[in-house]
Design a protein around this nucleic acid. Structure first.
Length: 542
RNA sequence: GCCCCGGUAGCUCAGUGGAUAGAGCAGCGGUUUCCUAAACCGUUGGUCGGAGGUUCAACUCCUCUCCGGGGCACCA
């Protein structure tokens, strides 16, 4: 419907040239009495043309060449809205489109031929993924899905660092636990990794090597084993919630390739860096940021900024048209430095889109659980998935705007009842599957021959909702707003339940019954497609 | 001191500068001899944190301010 109107206005703009280059908006009015679609063009033009908006609206309507069989009525309302009422005979045509496109209904080719990379999770292998990482993981994967739905070829990538201080501390934490298990007296520093998993890794080393490692240092087998075990655990968790990375990018590669040295030289050559207090600084103030930052420490080790910039350069070299970085809000001060560095080297930093999601607050028995990886006071993503299931985890993390804090109530999520919106959606899908099984036994088949019989209000409301889906996918993808899909699906499911409460199939006149079966299939397809974007399963039975 | 995010119904949250601000849950009252009641219907509930400003029109944009969260590393 929107597409039809939008084409209509583009055509009309050839006659009424003032319709060109203005940002009019088509919207579905809040109230049914305001039609199916509404446009605000006349009000926007009012100031520009210094004319009465209702007068302009009239002129626009006179010049619209619309098909009577598609648009039944056009009205001017309020301060100058133009309201369109679509013909009840046109509206069911969407069913044909859905039944033809099936699992592709909602996809578009708008960005066909473009390549995108979504970098997410990117947690260093110092411990299991926590609930905090869960939001990043789920949203990142869903954003990648959305981009695929609008035509992008998408790569998912995980960037990690297995060198540096944190990893040394990790290795030493394992070493100390190893010694402790062998009944040596140790002093375990407070800022070391406190988690149980460290002891498990130490035990594993004892099982394999006995006490032969007593003289080994932290950096060797202790660190290596820790990294290997932890990564295996992370990947297992990712698999459980359906995430498959295309690539794991090790920061260390950037050193081996000589990219770090090269980058340092580039900054020096371009006079963008300087030495002070035995460290090398990047002139970020000259690039428009607040303060200069260190890129090489006194120790000679680069800070994260240098490899981060080098890493993004590899993304540019790999030919991505769009690069998404997804971080938690604790990183929100880091990315402007990286982008400024890229700009200074001539890269188009507009192609890099940094998404920041706010924190997850876990509520347990009415209390906020404070979490810290190092203190081991956290709930792992694995535990969460075990308790509530992958579908609930995926849905909960997807259902809120990423800029809002997410309140994850463990008791509620565990409840597997109607308080959980994910069950509402899955039930709608399962209910349709059940209906379809039933009507088949009755010898009824879907038919597109008499869709014009779908004239009841609830039927028309559901049909109109189908029209919105492709546009909803497009808007969600272009704005990286995963929660819009969840909201849309809840509205869609609600409309289906209302339809089915009022309209029965078995017992209705045959042509009507078969048209309604087609309507059910269309609803099921749309629900399933939406759920697949979110990575939530669509069960046939519950 | 500075930067980012939030503040909307009892709770959790939606809300492209548009018409009378919505949903879910909770509360209250109903609906099933009938293809899934994990459903549906009705109803209660609002100073959109506050103050200015821009606009034909502000929950939405701008300024100031209060409250909460996250940052401002030679950690990532």
């Amino acid at each position: 419907m929107k597409q039809y109107l939008s084409d209509l206005f583009i055509k009309t703009a050839e006659k009424l040239t003032y319709l060109k280059d203005i940002d009019y908006v088509f919207s579905v009015p809040n109230q049914k009495s305001h039609g199916d679609y509404s446009i605000n063009a006349a009000m926007i033009l009012s100031k520009k043309l210094k004319r009465n908006p209702r007068e302009i609206a009239n002129e626009i309507i006179e010049n619209l060449e619309c098909d009577k069989s598609v648009i039944e009525k056009i009205e001017i309302a309020g301060p100058g809205f133009i309201n369109f009422y679509f013909s009840p005979n046109y509206i069911p045509s969407i069913i044909k489109e859905i039944l033809t496109k099936k699992e592709n209904f909602g996809r578009s080719q708008k960005y066909y031929g473009k390549k995108a990379m979504v970098e997410f999770i990117s947690a260093n292998p110092t411990g299991p993924l926590t609930v905090g990482h869960g939001r990043n993981a789920v949203v990142g994967d869903t954003v990648a899905n959305l981009l695929e739905w609008i035509g992008y070829e998408v790569d998912r990538e995980y960037y990690f660092n297995n060198a540096g201080r944190q990893m040394r501390v990790l290795g030493d934490s394992v070493r100390l636990r190893y010694l402790e298990q062998l009944e040596n007296k140790i002093d375990f520093p407070e800022d070391y990794y406190q988690g149980e998993y460290i002891k498990e890794i130490a035990n594993k080393l004892i099982a394999e090597h006995g006490d032969k490692l007593i003289k080994d240092d932290a950096e060797g087998i202790f660190k290596q084993t820790a990294e290997k075990e932890i990564f295996a655990d992370i990947i297992k968790t990712m698999n459980e919630i359906g995430i498959k990375m295309k690539n794991f990018y090790n920061e260390h590669t950037l050193y081996e390739d000589g990219r770090i040295t090269w980058l340092l030289e580039e900054f020096k050559k371009k006079n963008l860096s300087y030495e002070k207090e035995n460290a090398i600084w990047l002139k970020l103030t000259e690039l428009g940021n607040e303060q200069d930052k260190v890129i090489v420490k006194q120790t000679g080790e680069p800070t994260y900024r240098l490899p981060d910039i080098a890493y993004h350069i590899t993304k540019f070299e790999r030919g991505y048209d769009l690069m998404i970085d997804l971080f938690g809000s604790d990183h929100n001060a880091a990315y402007p430095d990286v982008l400024a560095g890229l700009r200074a080297l001539g890269y188009d930093s507009d192609k890099v889109n940094v998404l920041i999601h706010q924190f997850v607050t876990i509520m347990q028995k009415g209390e906020v659980v404070k979490m810290s990886t190092r203190k081991a006071n956290y709930i792992t993503l694995d535990e969460l998935v075990d308790e509530v299931g992958a579908d609930v985890v995926r849905y909960f993390f997807n259902m809120r705007s990423i800029s809002s804090h997410l309140n994850f109530d463990l008791e509620l999520a565990k409840k597997q009842s109607d308080e959980n919106p994910v069950f509402y959606l899955q039930y709608a899908h399962a209910r349709i599957a059940s209906i379809l099984r039933m009507v088949k036994e009755q010898g009824l088949d879907p038919s597109l021959e008499h869709l014009e019989l779908l004239t009841k209000q609830v039927e028309q409301d559901l049909l109109k909702k189908f029209f919105e889906f492709p546009n909803e996918v497009l808007l969600s993808a272009e704005n990286y707003e995963v929660h819009r899909i969840a909201i849309y699906l809840e509205e869609l499911a609600s409309l289906f339940h209302r339809f089915y409460t009022e309209c029965r199939i078995i017992g209705s006149e045959k042509n009507l019954a078969e048209a309604r079966i087609a309507l059910c299939i269309a609803a099921q397809t749309t629900l399933r497609n939406g759920l697949s974007i979110l990575g939530v399963s669509a069960p046939d039975r519950m």
